[in-house]
Design a protein around this nucleic acid. Structure first.
Lengths: 148, 148
DNA sequence: CTTCTTGCAAAGCTTTTGCAGCACG
DNA sequence: CGTGCTGCAAAAGCTTTGCAAGAAG
């Protein structure tokens, strides 16, 4: 069976890029932390554990490359660093985020809740939507429970 | 009649901050460019036209202060700079944005289109929503028309 | 006086870039 | 060989901070 890495390798090849050991190590870290929202520095430190010789610049370059190929999405929650999020395979749109203003946790909503809204926006504002970013700021279920 | 500046002055006072000449000049620039999405540097240059002695750090400090008081919202469209957007008076939530991937224009949607979605999120994910950020990326009506 | 605010310069951070060397066909 | 990729260090932004001086009550 074809693995996720293999498919990413093909995506790279079809744009004439190689899956070098450094790039593979970076992608593996992203796969192992799919639930998280790692910054470039986070990724760098994790890659370094297994491939200590990698440079931070290479991580940045790889993340930029993966963003360009739409394998990952670059997001910004307003804390001064960019974070990188593996896109669901075959997902047309970017998923949504729930950012907790108390504990800082970031949860994901994979479901697309914006279909109706997008229809309205396309018609009423005559805007051809290609992608979206939706983040809710509030209090997560864990922090709500904690207060009781 | 009470002006917008007066009301902002009161908001500052009620948190024991002063509306200094520098702060007032900064707020005026924001009011005059309500439609735009100015970066700190943009604001600095515009304020400088009328108050040449102002320092960039003061503009940053003022924008931070206004963000804290929820008079402006700090946004990030992923281009490496923070932008500042005056909040509609009395608006409970942040408005939405349409970012054109061809010409870079940013249009605003003042209407709140997320009421239904928020209800679903609060119930299904047990998340207490305090605010949201919604940005659509796509092609604006101007660029669509241009192609015809 | 006392407290808050400012301007300047320096420092801090994240991210990008230049370049020589390496890898691999 | 040639092209692409990497690591390192330097550079380049954007933003924050330290500090002495200034403003305001």
């Amino acid at each position: 069976m074809e693995s996720r890495i293999d498919r990413i390798k093909k995506q790279l090849h079809s744009s004439s890029y190689k899956l070098t050991p450094q790039r593979e190590a970076t992608v593996r870290v992203l796969l192992e932390h799919e639930e998280d929202h790692l910054s470039a520095e986070d990724v760098y430190l994790l890659v370094k554990e297994k491939s200590p010789e990698i440079g931070l610049a290479t991580v940045y370059r790889t993340l930029e490359l993966l963003t360009e190929l739409k394998i990952v999405d670059k997001i910004n929650f307003g804390d001064g660093v960019s974070r990188y999020d593996l896109r669901q395979e075959g997902a047309a749109h970017f998923h949504h985020h729930l950012v907790c203003i108390e504990c800082g946790a970031v949860d994901e909503i994979q479901e697309d809740l914006l279909e109706d809204v997008e229809e309205v926006v396309e018609k009423r504002w005559h805007f051809k939507i290609k992608d979206h970013r939706l983040t809710f700021h509030g209090i997560c279920y864990r922090c709500q429970d904690k207060k009781k």
